Simulated scan of single mutants.
Amino acid sequence: MLKTSIAMKTREEEAAAALRTVLEQVPAITAVDMRFEPFVHRDEVAIAVHFKVSGKPQTLACEVNASGQPRHVRNTLLQLRNAQAHRTQTPAAIPVLIAPYLSPEAQALCREQDVSFLDLEGNVRIVFDGIFIERQVASKPVTERRELRSMFKPKSAQVLRVMLRDPARAWRVTELAEAADVSLGHVSNVRNSLLDREWASVSDAGLYLSEPDALLDDWRGAYEPPAGKRQGFYTALHGSAFEDAARQVLRAEGEAGRAVFASFSAAHWLAPYGRTGTQYFHADEPGLQRLASALKLSPALKGENVVVNVLKEPGLFLDAVEPAPGAFCTGAVQTYLDLSSAGERGRESADHLRQEALQWLK
């Protein structure tokens, strides 16, 4: 039966309970004594677990982390390894990292450092003296999903789109805020999130994306289409007549309203992958009115061949590109995300776009 030597804080209590559940499932582990050790020096661990494996004594030296983000995990792993190096008992204690949630990247760091791990979502890998305990779960905790969604909200997304244009470029906070048209506070929040997940690094020149591929993968997984009102229309225009009329509207300068090709229509200009019978746009209200007039749009409850998303936030227009005269489109990253959420055919088109237009991922 497990014993706890003193009253523990909630975080350590949860960690101890999860660890106890795992150990109790191994018949060879007996005489478990779990002790909480308050911090005095940085090298000390939070929980020490003494037990026997088939009669032989063994110890787990466990550090309980409040955060499982890779940057914090990397620092804790160094502390655990240092603590292990300075401990003199025989046999040597097995280092274990415990956190609320450890992403696949954080788990990989543990494996690289030969440190066992456990998180409160159910991911575990504890290896020692002939014992091998491993389990993986696909779920992410609510807090992690919430943090990811927050990271990709409109203002933050403006920062990320700017950085993804050229991931190797280093940015000062002030110039990044100006380029993305957001506050310094927004840039600082994004900066911290990127560094915590080790998607970005800092050089003498500033902040740059060190793992743009990983960033885009997680953005795709957490992606929510831009907030707005979806409206379907029908037009009798098609082919070159439609393209000419649309480009005339999109290229107009000095007039009220913004509109850009989006989704499959943007991909047609950025990285063609088969045509679709429906044309897609992002627009603001004045931009929609101009599109409706030039393309002779009529509302369609059925048989729509033009879809316009009237955006609530204008930031997406900052990332517009013009691959051909007048053919203003959402940028490659935004187009990729829109396509990724557009069913199987959209995912195929997104994969093609990523290969052809996002070569910085190679």
Rank of each mutant, 00 (worst) to 15 (best):
H186G: 09
M34K: 00
R161F: 12
D284P: 03
V127I: 08
S341W: 08
R165F: 07
F39D: 14
A259I: 02
A271R: 04
Q58N: 08
G228R: 06
F317P: 11
R74Q: 10
A262Q: 04
M1K: 00
V159I: 10
A342M: 12
N189K: 08
D213K: 03
D213A: 11
R146I: 10
P299N: 09
A28V: 07
P154G: 10
Q355H: 12
A83Q: 02
E304A: 15
L295N: 01
F152E: 13
I29Q: 00
G254S: 05
G326W: 00
G239L: 06
A93M: 09
A236N: 07
E147K: 15
S139T: 10
F51Y: 09
S293Q: 14
E224P: 02
Y280L: 07
E12F: 00
M8L: 06
L237I: 07
L148A: 14
A99Y: 05
L209K: 06
A168N: 11
T88W: 06
L77W: 00
R81W: 04
W199P: 07
E243Y: 04
W269D: 12
E37W: 00
D319K: 03
P91K: 01
K140G: 06
F51N: 02
K312G: 14
P141K: 03
H282Q: 12
A180T: 12
E14R: 14
L318H: 14
A108S: 10
S139K: 08
W199Q: 05
I131L: 11
S298A: 14
L19H: 00
L288D: 04
L237F: 00
L295F: 05
W269Q: 10
V306N: 01
P38N: 01
L80H: 00
E253G: 07
A170T: 14
N305H: 06
A168F: 05
V190R: 03
A222T: 08
A200S: 12
L318K: 10
H238P: 01
Q248I: 00
K9E: 14
A18C: 03
R81F: 05
P91R: 00
R169Y: 13
Q89C: 08
L316F: 09
N309P: 06
V53G: 05
L194Q: 05
S139A: 14
E147R: 14
K362G: 13
P57Q: 03
S188V: 08
D244G: 02
L78W: 11
N309M: 10
